[in-house]
């Protein structure tokens, strides 16, 4: 069942892109948040993904040439050290002594671009999966 591996690879890419869209949603939802749990303010989150290593035991045991094709995985979620956006709002409960409120340095345009990129990558994963499925179904028509 060779096409199942193509399905698994595409599924790993889909999971990564789904997590990226989730992070973008978190960033956009917190674009106007002035507090965070750790007290340093909200910072934009970024997802770091990497190629999944094919050196796990079943792949080594199989020893096949295609056994090391494993897809993508989420490595970590990091925060960008962008400076906060200071807005002069003296009556705000989170304003400092000069009357400035530190809004998070989240760029909505960059977030939208990240989201669009993730959506397009997800669509590409679906296209690859559909191609593998079409190949499998076409194989079933041999001789028929």
């Amino acid at each position: 069942m060779d096409y199942l591996q193509a399905f698994a690879i595409s599924a790993s890419g889909m999971a990564v892109e789904k997590a990226r869209v989730d992070l973008t949603a978190v960033n956009l939802a917190n674009a106007q948040s002035t507090r965070s749990a750790d007290g340093i303010g909200v910072r934009p989150l970024r997802l770091v993904s990497a190629a999944r290593s094919g050196t796990d035991f079943p792949a080594l045991l199989a020893g096949a040439a295609g056994a090391s094709l494993q897809g993508a995985q989420i490595v970590s979620i990091t925060t960008l050290a962008t400076p906060p956006r200071l807005v002069f709002e003296p009556g705000h409960p989170d304003a400092d002594e000069n009357g400035f409120v530190a809004y998070p340095g989240i760029n909505p345009v960059a977030e939208m671009i990240n989201m669009l990129t993730a959506v397009r990558a997800y669509e590409a994963d679906v296209a690859a999966l559909n191609a593998a499925k079409a190949m499998a179904l076409r194989t079933l028509q041999i001789g028929g």
């Binding site: 096409y3 199942l4 399905f7 595409s10 599924a11 889909m14 999971a15 789904k18 999966l129 499925k133 499998a136 179904l137 079933l140 001789g143 028929g144």
Partner: peptide, 26 residues
Amino acid sequence: QNLHQVMIALEEARIGVQLLVQVRNR
């Protein structure tokens, strides 16, 4: 948790059924 795993499981089942149907036709 993830929608695509469900869809992929559906497609795998569908391809399996079609393979079985083709074997039966032969």
